[in-house]
């Protein structure tokens, strides 16, 4: 096996190399998940409790008024929880990925492997949390006796995929910037908080007719993802325009993130 080490000239994704190191995805994800819940009493329950708390708070304080104003066809808690679960993939996926390079600086400085593995594994960790929380969601569906549109189950993977692409795009961009500008670390929490309110997670997108609000809600790649998820409940119709726009935006975000990350990763070891 011959190899060459030389200055990077042309852009490539490095898929072949990622495949060679595929086992590392497993190990990094496994480590992140393991370490996250080590020495906690509730362990994996935390993956469920976080979205559940938000849902309860919003149901108690805003649930009725949101339902009334937007003519929700399903009980508000089901609506909010479905949003929060998908939002969990995006928010923790993005922020884990964004911090991952700096958090693993000691490894990056000492050993080589395709750098993309670290942020991607960080996202996979968030995805595992999502799957852990699914049973609780199913229980909620039973409690509120929501009727399901089972053919829409096929949309669920697409929805998760769009969410992952967007989370990865933002995460990679922020991760690369974070290595160079530590300011990013402080931007992330408030970015996540802000994004939650321009995403139809806890309220449907028809809550405001303000054109600025509509512009952000439509452009938001999670709008389409949420639309696809909620197609699961009978009484919902999918706005295909939103879905296609979301797909396009998420792909664009992903490409931007990957290209910027790949272009700058050579100097991570010097700056991290």
């Amino acid at each position: 096996m011959e190899f060459e080490i030389k200055p990077r000239s042309k852009f490539s994704l490095g898929l072949k190399e990622l495949w060679e190191y595929r086992e590392l995805f497993y190990f990094f994800t496994w480590r992140d998940v393991k370490v996250k819940y080590k020495q906690t009493v509730l362990g994996f329950l935390w993956a469920i409790l976080q979205p559940l708390f938000m849902t309860v708070i919003f149901t108690v304080f805003l649930g009725e008024s949101i339902s009334a104003k937007t003519h929700l066809p399903i009980p508000y808690p089901v609506f909010a929880l479905s949003g929060m679960l998908l939002w969990g993939i995006f928010s923790s996926g993005m922020s884990n990925a964004a911090n991952s390079m700096v958090n693993n600086a000691n490894i990056i400085k000492k050993i080589y492997f395709p750098r993309l593995i670290i942020p991607i594994s960080a996202l996979l960790g968030a995805l595992i949390d999502f799957f852990v929380a699914i049973p609780v969601f199913i229980i909620t569906l039973f409690i509120y006796k929501v009727e399901l549109n089972f053919s829409a189950l096929l949309f669920l993977p697409v929805s998760v995929f769009i969410t992952c692409l967007s989370a990865m795009g933002c995460g990679l961009l922020l991760a690369a910037l974070n290595v160079k500008y530590r300011d990013v670390r402080y931007i992330i929490p408030f970015l996540v908080q802000g994004l939650l309110f321009i995403t139809p997670v806890l309220f449907p997108s028809n809550i405001s007719q303000n054109p600025i609000a509509q512009f952000f809600l439509q452009l938001n790649p999670l709008s389409g993802a949420l639309e696809l998820t909620r197609a699961l409940f009978t009484g919902y119709t999918i706005n295909m325009e939103t879905v296609f726009l979301s797909m396009a935006v998420s792909v664009l975000l992903f490409i931007t993130g990957v290209v910027y990350f790949r272009k700058t990763e050579g100097y991570f070891a010097d700056l991290a």
Binding site: I5, K6, K109, Y112, G266, Y267, D270
Partner: peptide
């Protein structure tokens, strides 16, 4: 870990 500026 760090790519060279030039050389191979």
């Amino acid at each position: 870990i760090t790519p060279p500026t030039s050389g191979k």
